[in-house]
Design a protein around this nucleic acid. Structure first.
Lengths: 348, 348
DNA sequence: GTGAAAGCGCTAACAC
DNA sequence: GTGTTAGCGCTTTCAC
């Protein structure tokens, strides 16, 4: 069942059917009615595929994330997906499990599939192959929008959070609670969020005349296991910190794992403030003070940016003159885990 | 840059280029080399779109899930996505936020987009419109595979878990710990998992000569807030249970929320066994005994089933003679929360 | 072993 | 207002 069949049964030409379908051009009300009736009767559904090929644009965008199971990314996907379905886009999902090679593979497949656009959270900030492929995509007219993580000097549109301010707030909160020895389980310096959150940490210290101690800053690589190891390193120092600031949800979990295994009680033995909330914890003894941000909205905004670029491209051609970078604000939810340890010997 | 350009530069015909591209038919080694060289030089990438239109099949499958942010679904998506990317499929992601109308909308859009197949976790088991649309998809040659939740009498392929056995094991564990008054926060009876898990609960009771009490079975609808309310109902009974079995991860959270708010301590005041693990809790005071299942693998298997159906369709035509339903096993992880309350007055 | 040509299902100039 | 026609970029039969 195609547009010709419908045209024939309705006694009109395919172009008229097309006009009706797209609600474009002038069609007499009566013929429109008739065509619509036939379409209904025959249960005809036009092929999006053929339309895309013909019109040269496509209403799917691809979303590439490093870790599908991380709730942070699920929330972003949710935001993207909901906005997309409202505006009539489909979302192609790809995960790379944080492996650069898989990122390259996916990018290659996208070069073939030619989606309408790409929203991406790159595995690494510096990656020659990824850079090349992203550039190729853009040059093929496929807009690229970044979320959360930045990508080297490529001047790409993107949605980011105020990582610096967030971390600064989080650490300041610990300082105000009386802490002077504050460790940080950071993210990779090769990522924007990792870097900015470190800077926020350092700045907060400086602003309160607390000396930055090299050994208090360890890299958890945004992963649970690595952060667990980082935490171990931190707590085995001869003069361990009384508080820890974790750079993301996974780092927080790694930290909690270590504490659990070593019988360290929150507040009693160690204070903790994390970046990004972990909602499941709110019903437990781990009442975490956290830096929050509107994650769902980051996805939503990324999709909005994408639509805008798609629209601009259609209306103004390829001559994009501006790069849009959106920042979302961070907040602080204080639940008590920042308190100064009341201590009972042990590590303190 | 299209296949004609390449053909011209290579001094051959488009069909030869096509043959080279698809590694099909006989092409002289030397011309093949030449064509390949030009392709490389020109950085040519064939359009999957055009190919799909021409050949009438497509290597994307759609995945429709009711709640993108629920870790259960993320894990399934992860399994699907990883298998898909290995076998060269793309995954279209759609969420419905548990709203039947959105499910209908998505299904409509799929009818237009004609994906290669559909893997779906339906919102409701009985839904006339969804049933119709799924049937239409199948009749259009688009295979449908279910995951986790079943769909009325439609004889569709699917991957499910041994919900009955899982629940039975979970409840039996509570009974063995000494409980006789066991409540359940169940899922909707209109869903297979909801029904089966209830049956498992009832069976476990019967097998241990414990009378089933109507008031101990409340519906939490697989959602946190509803389960919270259900829990409230349960605990406000004049003779409240000493243990609760929750039908899914959200029900467990609702239950924990109530406990937190009402200062009920796990084990001390109430025992709890849940269906599906909540990994974040393992580093807290909530050491939950849970029924587990290989969720990632459920997604993986669903995709495998899908590929098989796609292959059968291609090789044998539409005459599918069997319906394949895969069951994954459930396990029990005992962590202590099933223990008989040592009590100190209060609710007990 | 290779090429010519029709066709997948739709859209968009252009003509009437 | 409506129809004719030539694509979109690929595959595939059928000749040669």
């Amino acid at each position: 069942m195609n547009i010709y069949d419908i045209a024939e049964k309705a006694g009109v030409s395919p172009s008229t059917v097309s006009r009706v379908l797209n609600d474009r051009g002038n069609v007499k009300e009566s013929t429109k009615k008739k065509v619509l009736r036939i379409i209904e009767e025959e249960n005809y559904i036009p092929s999006a595929l053929a339309r895309n090929l013909s019109v040269g644009e496509c209403r799917n965008i691809a979303f590439l994330a490093p870790d599908i199971e991380n709730p942070f990314f699920s929330k972003i996907l949710h935001g993207i997906s909901n906005r997309a379905s409202q505006t009539g886009y489909g979302v192609f999902m790809f995960g790379t499990d944080e492996e650069p090679e898989r990122e390259h593979q996916v990018l290659d497949s996208l070069l073939r599939d030619k989606p309408g656009g790409l929203i991406v959270i790159p595995v690494q900030e510096h990656d020659r192959l990824t850079a090349e492929k992203l550039k190729t995509l853009e040059s093929e007219g496929i807009p690229v929008v970044l979320v959360d993580r930045d990508f080297q000097d490529a001047s790409l549109d993107g949605v980011f959070s105020e990582d610096f301010q967030g971390a600064r707030k989080g650490v300041a909160c610990l300082i105000q609670a009386g802490h002077k020895k504050i460790g940080m389980i950071g993210g990779p310096v090769t990522s924007r969020p990792g870097r900015e959150r470190r800077k926020g940490y350092e700045t907060a210290l400086r602003e309160h005349d607390i000396r930055f101690r090299e050994e208090y800053m360890v890299d958890g690589n945004f992963m649970e296991e690595t952060s667990y190891q980082a935490m171990k390193k931190l707590m085995e120092l001869t003069d361990p910190p009384t508080a820890v600031f974790t750079a993301n949800n996974m780092a927080t979990l790694g930290c909690l794992k270590y504490m659990k295994e070593n019988d360290l009680k929150l507040v009693r033995d160690l204070a903790l403030v994390g970046f990004d909330d972990i909602p499941e914890l709110q019903y437990t003894d781990i009442q975490l003070t956290v830096v929050t941000r509107p994650i769902y909205d980051m996805g939503w905004e990324a999709m909005r940016l994408m639509e805008q670029r798609l629209k601009d491209k259609k209306e103004l051609g390829e001559n994009r003159k501006v790069v849009q970078r959106i920042m979302v604000r961070t907040g602080l939810v204080v639940r008590g885990s920042e308190a100064y340890p009341i201590g009972e010997g042990g590590t303190l």
